[in-house]
Design a protein around this nucleic acid. Structure first.
Lengths: 270, 270
DNA sequence: CGAAATATTGACAATGATCAACTCTTGTGG
DNA sequence: CCACAAGAGTTGATCATTGTCAATATTTCG
């Protein structure tokens, strides 16, 4: 295990704060932002996270055009979903953080339209995508929370579209860092200070739609401006959170960190 | 009504082919790609499309940060969802075509994270977003089709991320044209030849993440290469569909034009 | 330790943005 | 229905951001 993995492993369980509140996993920590989970609901989610497989970093989990046969919960580790162009160019579409579902639309799609790879060593619990159908029938509140989660994923994508279309490299970079930092923190994955992301510049370039060379330069500029840690060799650590937010004019509306709307709450609490 | 609107109106109902097959609306034409709609299901959808409001072109339907209170079906016309940056830059995230839902996540989100405007005169049927909950309980097949539709929207977003991140202006342009042409055709909105999009270059620039000047130049190049119509003054008409596909190395996997997977079909046909 | 991957740096090229002037459309109001 | 204003599109010149290439340094990992 290298240093990077060690850093990562250290953050590999929900923070004390969250475990004390009986939120036993990152998935639950996430969904609990939206609804308060009952004991049954927690048990149900638990069954989806049991006995995760251990998978090394850099493994291809889903290939583009593969038939979709399984779904999973990323119990721990980072993955990325990305699209490949025929000439080798690739674009990371989304970072997948602990507590995220993988391949949840296997129910409705036959073939994968994007690839998924592990970025770090991961623990993944696989399940039959059809099981989701059962949840939707038996646990309406959980179903709504999962819908909320999926809708949020879409909001993140929209924000990424805006970033890639209209923000400069520098702004894009700052924006991505803030987004990840907030998500990690809300899910109880991060440490309070000096958040470190276990991602290489090559990965960053594919996420930001830049060349690796330009990522290196932008990173240096961010360091010079005192926004990120100057000494970090691999990965990125935030130094000035507020400064980064200012640099990209961050608006957190799209994170939808608000609990379930009252009307919906009523409707799902039969 | 100007000429552009006239062109648009001429295409404002499902093609004969589709009406003959009792697909009475663009929404049904879309969902019918995924499941065969029963009479009850059609009736249910019908109730969501009744008595549409007529709305002029260029109207703001949803402002960013507005509370989400209503959902709708775009019965006819084109809309765009877009994000605004504080300094005036804007990015179109998605074109909304006839037969699309508007604001379907009002159930789970409190505030809009993107704006929606009409691009052409539109007909929109508004409904209370909570009604969707009823559908999901009463019409499982319809629910699955709507989930399929939402998942597809997400696939489109991913493809847009790939375009903005890794494709050149020329490729992006070609790709968008092909995508729109296919969607329109599948929904029975288009005419067989010389597909015309009722969108100005200003709108295109916000969709492609380019300046209007560069859109004008790219458009000219596409004309010179014989891929689009040379004479069209407003809007864009495709001349060489295959050529455009080749120009952006179009891969239609992400459109997910395949009907419901067998396993899911079984699960929802109780 | 050594190979392979990752990161850095400088020089140069290219894609696309900006500015400004101008033309052509389109829609409105008298 | 015409005139005119506003919007949309075009063009050229110039500039800026970002990409490409190549050489080198540094880390990581077997």
């Amino acid at each position: 295990m290298n240093e990077q993995d060690a850093v990562f492993a250290e953050r590999s369980r929900p923070s004390d704060d969250l475990t004390n509140r009986s939120v036993a996993s990152f998935l639950m920590a996430k969904l609990a932002q939206f609804i308060e989970l009952t004991a049954e609901e927690r048990a149900c989610l638990d069954s989806f996270e049991s006995e995760p497989d251990h998978i090394a970093a850099g493994e291809l989990l889903v290939r583009e055009n593969d038939p979709l046969t399984r779904a999973g919960v990323l119990v721990d580790g980072w993955c990325a979903s990305y699209k490949l162009l025929s000439d080798g160019r690739q674009q990371i579409v989304n970072f997948i953080l602990p507590g995220s579902f993988l391949g949840l639309h296997a129910n409705v799609f036959k073939y994968a339209d994007h690839a998924i790879s592990t970025l770090t060593p991961c623990r993944i619990s696989w399940f039959d995508p059809q099981e989701i159908t059962g949840i939707f029938a038996a646990y309406p509140r959980l179903a709504t929370a999962i819908v909320w989660d999926a809708a949020r994923e879409q909001s993140f994508l929209m924000e990424r579209v805006a970033s890639l279309g209209r923000r400069s490299a520098y702004e894009r970079f700052a924006h991505l860092l803030i987004e990840l930092a907030i998500l990690l923190e809300k899910r109880g994955i991060s440490q309070s200070e000096g958040q470190i992301f276990p991602i290489t510049q090559t990965v960053l370039s594919d996420a930001l739609g830049l060349s690796t060379v330009h990522v290196s330069r932008t990173l240096r500029q961010l360091r010079k401006d005192g926004l990120i840690e100057p000494d970090t060799k691999r990965g990125v650590a935030i130094r000035d959170f507020e400064g980064l937010k200012a640099a990209c004019d961050f608006d957190k509306t799209y994170l939808h960190e608000t609990p379930v709307p009252a009307k919906t709450e009523q409707a799902i609490t039969t």
